[in-house]
């Protein structure tokens, strides 16, 4: 009888998870209890912005809309809660402050969901003007798109139960660790920590469900994403805080639009000086002590 109750509960949970695919649990990025409270930051829109030498900017300007590709499914970074019209999160704030520098107010931004498979194609065919979507800068991607930034250096980390002894990836031998099928964090575990028992699903929410039920010992991906889940677990889960990779998040741009790339890099530099970056971080991801904005790489 007890087992049946368990099963019903688990299946109900499963069904909920299923229905939640694509938006995942949200840590209330817009000033909920998981993030630092406060009003949404306002970024001053540059009225006199003129980057007409950039084809991308010129087209956006004449349309009156800047189209930005973001994640809709990463709590704390780029997430669109059920029923909401616009996404929220750190990536979204970065996108807004970059847009402000380019002369676009938040209501002049069109948000387009991008996932791993369509970021490059969307930039190449002009579906989006910019991508701010937990987009790790690497050499292969630089072949086909350009990057401004980085605006944040994430690191792969572990989400574990509050009372877990796991303190880093070297403790993973003999434990089961969950990540998203095919993702870079999953590949890194498979290659560098093969003694760990890797479990993969299509979405992180299934991993978190398994972690909460004790079926897996840890969930791994970029720390910024894990923070979102830890924040909404009411203290049951914690981020280990011992990152073992560098994932420099950049702003993806169409290839060979140097004017636009300089402009976005300038925007990020300005954000350091005028405090916009810190405001954005604290509004969405919480306490920024010990976290620094990385230097932009004008390669």
């Amino acid at each position: 009888m007890k087992k049946i109750t368990f099963l019903t509960a688990a299946l109900a949970a499963g069904a909920l998870t299923l229905s939640a695919c694509g938006q995942e649990g949200t840590p209330d990025a817009g000033g909920g209890e998981g993030a630092a409270a406060g009003d949404a930051p306002v970024y001053e829109v540059a009225e006199d912005a003129d980057f007409s030498e950039s084809d991308t900017w010129e087209a956006a300007q004449s349309n009156g809309t800047l189209t930005i590709g973001v994640r809709f499914d990463q709590p704390g970074l780029g997430n669109r809660p059920a029923g909401a019209d616009v996404p929220e999160g750190f990536d979204i704030e970065i996108a807004k402050l970059v847009a402000a520098h380019l002369g676009f107010a938040p209501e002049e931004i069109e948000w387009v969901e991008t996932v791993s498979a369509n970021r490059e194609p969307f930039l190449q065919n002009g579906t989006v003007d910019l991508v701010v979507a937990t987009y790790t800068i690497n050499d292969e991607r630089k072949q086909v798109v350009d990057f401004a930034g980085p605006y944040y250096v994430a690191g792969q980390d572990l989400l574990v139960a509050e009372d877990s002894d796991i303190a880093g990836p070297e403790d993973l031998a003999g434990t089961s660790v969950c990540s998203v099928d095919g993702s870079t964090p999953a590949q890194r575990i498979a290659e560098e920590y093969p003694e760990a028992d890797l479990v993969t699903y299509d979405v992180y929410s299934k991993c978190v469900t398994d972690l909460q039920s004790g079926s897996v010992d840890a969930v791994t991906t970029d720390d910024a994403i894990l923070r979102g889940y830890a924040a909404q677990s009411d203290g049951a889960l914690k981020v280990v805080g011992n990152p073992f990779s560098d994932e420099p998040y950049g702003v993806g741009l169409p290839k060979d639009d140097q004017v636009l790339r300089d402009a976005v890099n300038d925007a990020l530099d300005e954000a350091r000086d005028n405090g916009y970056w810190t405001e954005a971080f604290e509004y969405t991801l919480g306490d920024s002590s010990g976290v620094e904005q990385p230097e932009v790489d004008r390669y």
Binding site: S116, A117, N118, R119, E120, P121, N138, E140, R141, Q143, V144, V145, D181, G182, S183, T184, A186, Q187, T200
Partner: peptide, 15 residues
């Protein structure tokens, strides 16, 4: 499909 997802993560330029 896993191989495809991994491939996309590794080689974003060849989606």
């Amino acid at each position: 499909i896993s191989a495809m997802r991994s491939g996309i993560e590794i080689r974003g330029d060849m989606v």
